[in-house]
Design a protein around this nucleic acid. Sequence first.
DNA 1: AATCATTTGTTTACATTTTAACAATGCAAA
DNA 2: TTTGCATTGTTAAAATGTAAACAAATGATT
Lengths: 220, 220
Amino acid sequence: MIAELLPERTVERLSKYRRVLSRELENGMDHIYSHDLAKLLHITPVQVRRDLMLIGHTGTLRKGYDIAKLIKLIGEIIDCSGIQKVAIVGLGQLGMALLNYLQNNKNKLHLTAAFDNNPEKIGHIFQGIPCYDEQQLKEVVEKEKITIGILTVPANKAVEMSHRMTDSGILGIINYTPASLKLDNAFLEEYDVITSLEKVAYFSKPFNLDLYKKLIQSQQ
Amino acid sequence: MIAELLPERTVERLSKYRRVLSRELENGMDHIYSHDLAKLLHITPVQVRRDLMLIGHTGTLRKGYDIAKLIKLIGEIIDCSGIQKVAIVGLGQLGMALLNYLQNNKNKLHLTAAFDNNPEKIGHIFQGIPCYDEQQLKEVVEKEKITIGILTVPANKAVEMSHRMTDSGILGIINYTPASLKLDNAFLEEYDVITSLEKVAYFSKPFNLDLYKKLIQSQQ
DNA sequence: AATCATTTGTTTACATTTTAACAATGCAAA
DNA sequence: TTTGCATTGTTAAAATGTAAACAAATGATT
Ligand SMILES: NC(=O)c1ccc[n+]([C@@H]2O[C@H](COP(=O)([O-])OP(=O)(O)OC[C@H]3O[C@@H](n4cnc5c(N)ncnc54)[C@H](O)[C@@H]3O)[C@@H](O)[C@H]2O)c1
Ligand SMILES: NC(=O)c1ccc[n+]([C@@H]2O[C@H](COP(=O)([O-])OP(=O)(O)OC[C@H]3O[C@@H](n4cnc5c(N)ncnc54)[C@H](O)[C@@H]3O)[C@@H](O)[C@H]2O)c1
């Protein structure tokens, strides 16, 4: 077991390692080299070895890493064997897309509930997930022991809802609204589509793209 | 004008500065201090000043930064005054949500076209955006001079489509599929929902969250 | 006019993340 | 048996990103 927090980027890559490794396992592979795993994610073998070192996974010199064992270890680190439950708060266009996505693509997250304030959605079940009235947030989150929330309400409700989520016992929120949040007792991950697009716009302006390509090349 | 590429994180923050500053402008503000701008995004004033230094914007000592001028400058840096056009490739659940989002929330991006292979969508117009047959990708991208693409096709089509996009003249792609891409002649930004959620899962495990909170506190 | 408080701009230091370097290992083949 | 080679694990260096420190400026106040 690891005593310290892993770097954020390492955790992100662990998630990706697990996903591609599961596919390799299904294809009948049982071991993999760092450079082959790296190739699947377009990163360097060094980074793979370093990440695996950090989680204490050790391979064999001639066969590489044991895929099944590695998947299991990553699961213990990220999921704690699926103890955490997830809720979607705001079942609009984006929330519904995410609900379908999470339910249809098998993954380790236990999506458990959705919340909305629209009477047409409250009480219905979508892909097996019940949609509750947002007034019941605290009640349901406490009863179901939900610890992770996906925030997809209109931006002007985001601050209020995020606080109600943490007050109900949610420990981690992923915020897809453009509102900038600040939480004291939970881990917060924000993702802003417009910002992401504007970043692409900046780096793909022809002049900048040239500079960027030169930068990349000079590093190889 | 700036001769060098800006750091990626600075560009991301510039996008957010512009958005909150536009709101301040609408509220009748004309100048803002670094610490007030910082508060709006929950970052430090130092970071604001450093970012603005990098883009060569200079404030006045007693009034702070001129909001209108700053918005204009950020626009010139990110958008080149809106010269770049955007296409959505794959108009499914996520693609459609993004289309509506981009059209309904005023922003500087010129969404111009969408592409799909589903006959029920091809030829229709959604929120003013025409959906073309994906076979016409090259033709339309070239004719309209589209330079930015949002990739939301099924994962197993992502590699092929990304190459067709860059072959057609697209210079920047934001990839929402879980497929890991590698492009030689374009800027690539990937966003993986599952990875993002699994990261939240890791850091919000009670033991890790405690470590994380201590870490944050020790930095203040 | 001199002082004070405030805020910017810039340099310096710190932290995180990535990449490089290389010793250690162990199997295969000569 | 010994040499060679491919691969891991780890330490060191470089790059990137963030925060702190502080001088310079400016206007308000005494
Ligand atoms: N649609 C997208 O592709 C997209 C992309 C990026 C970000 N976003 C952001 O995600 C959020 C949702 O976007 P959307 O397009 O799905 O909007 P939407 O209006 O379709 O969905 C919002 C949903 O939240 C519900 N709601 C309102 N108040 C609520 C409350 N207090 N508690 C619970 N539910 C509540 C509404 O009934 C609605 O179903 C917005 O903040 C938007 O800016 C959307
Ligand atoms: N739905 C979500 O919330 C969500 C979240 C994260 C990531 N994703 C990813 O985004 C992608 C799309 O997800 P979705 O839920 O919208 O799936 P979807 O099946 O609803 O949408 C895919 C769309 O792409 C179209 N398509 C198929 N082949 C195409 C081609 N060659 N060219 C153009 N269009 C083509 C399909 O007709 C369909 O309309 C998937 O890769 C998925 O993994 C989805």
